[in-house]
């Protein structure tokens, strides 16, 4: 699985499917644009944010430190994919 996940585009697509399934059941993932503000758009609330962070940690085998708990890292699909890819290539491995 890690091979298919290992590009920014692939990462973003996996996150897109998860967000659509978990937070917008009934919505086609293709209808969820990369730059949609998921926090201010009412898709992900504070509890949803924690859920998605826990899911990102498990799915992509990354550690989200307390210093990373900045909503800007999780505001939209692009930001989340960039965060995951940076965390995977960073010193934390």
């Amino acid at each position: 699985m890690s091979e298919t996940l290992n590009t920014p585009t692939a990462t973003r697509e996996v996150i897109r499917r998860y967000v659509a399934t978990e937070f917008l059941p009934g919505t086609d993932p293709a209808d969820l644009p990369d730059g949609t503000d998921l926090l201010n758009g009412g898709v992900i609330d504070s509890l949803g944010l924690l859920k998605i962070i826990a899911w990102l940690e498990t799915t992509f085998d990354v550690v989200v430190e307390d210093t990373d708990l900045d909503p800007e890292n999780f505001r939209d699909l692009t930001a989340m994919a960039a965060f995951v890819d940076a965390a995977r290539s960073g010193p934390r491995g």
Partner: peptide, 18 residues
Amino acid sequence: GELELRRHCTTLLHRAAV
């Protein structure tokens, strides 16, 4: 759609009320 209704709610409601 759901995205549109959520956007609508967040402009008029406190976040806990969405």
